[in-house]
Design a protein around this nucleic acid. Structure first.
Length: 506
DNA sequence: AGTGCAGTTGACTTT
DNA sequence: TAAAGTCAACTGCAC
């Protein structure tokens, strides 16, 4: 018996674990509901809801192949032991998972169990992430090669006399109620619809609209939860994008210029997806510890509960920031730029250690992908040591990305009586005291003073002895080969890049 | 018509 | 995926 263990690869198409297992004999397609996983602080009801959509669809798709999904509850090893008691298990098949600390530890236990039982566990490469990578040289080319390989079809399966089991409700898993009215639907039909409508219609204004919290909702691909939970494979998405690019190349002329730019930009971002996951794969501790240790201890270890709560609920008194957080809570999605701003305000303006706000965001993003998430959290908190500091001004971002105020007003209706010109800084309105302190809070911080204080502290750390040497080591291991290290001084970039063995920029 | 000047714009640097 | 500061060039306008 070949056991195919589905994790974050909830599809039958282009599923190499499933296809390879089916070539070798009878397949038992298994999903294990692990109660302990769903008790982890980065997991939430909206993740489960999306996964449950995917499981329902996966089971239908597997049934069409000949054998529906087998759903079991409990620790994976217990479930596998039960299966082994009934069938001789020749091998376990799955995709490599770059998950959180809990799934990493669980996978090591599963590996040990398989060894002890004499069961081969085949873990196939997932996305463009490489396990056991030594350095980043040639990484992008390897990504292209892997994504260009043929998509594998869904195999035919022999039916098994097994109870398919049941997909539980979030409440059965002890998950806190997590209403998310605007959550994206999981499953492959929804994913394929997103892919097609993005490449054919919605994507045209991608480059300009992606920075807007309102327009981005339509103009961004919205494929992220499907890639995170595997209802689509990265290869399928990459190949569909390349096909669309070739089609646009054939159609000459100006009207397609916008489309071509959008698709170029989008395919670049598909690399970045895996580039960030690779960091967590290479260094799992970035989920818990500052990538650059010089930042250890600069923020209080225990988060200020009031600040954290106000930030998480969208009650800081900074309208645009609050609108972003409320929108995220209600829909499970926020565009990239606003995610960066939300994390940066928690880390810089509110001076919260990134771990607690990072967990909050992990639970709120339907598309929570641990590798991307924790890499981004650290980058936006300035604790990597290799990225430029980006301290966002929530008022300026509001003016720049919500010029009409439509987004802010939609999510912060308490400000209805504040005139447009003061919407982003209601404390400056003449009628401020009619609204603030009543329906909507006064700002909990002076954001300009807070940004200044944060910047001064961070830059002081950067000047400390030994900071730079450590940063260069981090760059050598994790940095993109195209961007090079963020330069802070007047040192000659050419000399530096040679020293690091990097190609010249450009 | 040329000059002086305040205000603006954009490229570039610094934090 | 930042923002603030610096500086030179430019603009509009009064005289």
């Amino acid at each position: 018996m070949q056991v195919v263990w589905f994790k974050r690869d909830l599809r039958v198409q282009d599923n190499r674990a499933l296809a390879a297992a089916a070539e070798r004999g009878s397949v038992l397609p298994l999903y294990v509901v692990e109660p302990e996983l769903w008790r982890q602080p980065d997991m939430s009801g909206r993740h489960w809801a999306f996964v449950a959509d995917c499981l329902a669809d996966l089971s239908r798709a597997l049934a069409a192949c000949g054998q529906p999904l087998i759903v079991r509850h409990g620790p994976v090893i217990d479930v596998l032991a039960e299966i082994r008691a009934r069938y001789p298990v020749a091998a376990l098949w799955s995709h490599e998972e770059t998950g959180n600390g809990w799934t990493y530890a669980r996978d090591r236990q599963v590996a040990a169990w398989c060894r002890a039982q004499g069961i081969a566990w085949h873990q196939l490469r997932n996305h463009g992430v490489q396990r056991g990578l030594r350095d980043r040289d040639g990484w992008a080319r390897a990504w292209d090669r892997f994504m260009a390989e043929p998509v594998v079809a869904a195999p035919a399966l022999r039916p098994l006399p097994l109870d398919p089991g049941r997909v539980p409700l979030a409440a059965d898993l002890g998950l806190a109620p997590d209403p998310c009215e605007g959550r994206q639907e999981g499953g492959r039909p929804a994913g394929l619809e997103r892919l097609d409508s993005f490449l054919r219609a919605r994507g045209e204004s991608y480059r300009t609209a992606m920075s807007s919290p309102l327009e981005g909702r339509v103009a961004c691909s919205r494929l992220s939860p499907h890639l995170a939970w595997g209802s689509l494979s990265m290869r399928e998405v990459a190949q569909a994008t390349w096909a669309r690019q070739r089609e646009l190349q054939r159609q000459s002329g100006g009207p397609q210029a916008r489309w071509r730019g959008a698709m170029r930009s989008f395919s670049g971002r598909l690399h970045w997806h895996c580039h960030f996951i690779q960091k967590l794969e290479d260094e799992p501790r970035i989920e818990f510890r500052n990538l650059h240790p010089a930042y250890d201890g600069i923020r209080p270890a225990a988060p200020d509960r009031d600040r954290l709560r106000a930030w998480a609920l969208g009650e800081t008194g900074l309208p645009f920031l609050d609108a972003c957080m409320r929108s995220l809570r209600a829909t499970g999605w926020l565009n990239f730029r606003m995610r960066a701003m939300a994390m940066a305000t928690a880390s810089y303006h509110l001076w919260l250690d990134w771990r607690a706000p990072g967990l909050e965001l992990a639970r709120l993003f339907t598309d929570y992908e641990p590798g991307i998430h924790w890499s981004q959290v650290q980058m936006q908190s300035g604790t990597t040591g290799i990225n430029t500091l980006r301290i966002y001004n929530p008022v300026k971002q509001g003016h720049d990305h919500d010029p009409t105020g439509a987004f802010t007003r939609r999510w912060v209706p308490e400000l209805a009586r504040i005139p447009d010109r003061h919407l982003q800084e209601p404390w400056k309105a003449e009628n401020a005291s009619e609204v603030l302190g009543r329906a909507y809070p006064w700002p909990i911080i002076d954001h300009l003073a807070a940004a200044r204080a944060a910047r001064d502290t961070i830059w002081a750390v950067r000047g400390d002895a030994g900071f730079r040497e450590r940063a260069e080591a981090i760059q050598a291991r994790h940095g993109s080969r195209r961007s090079g290290i963020a330069r802070t001084g007047r040192r000659k970039p050419v000399a530096d890049t040679r020293q690091l063995g990097l190609p010249l920029e450009g």
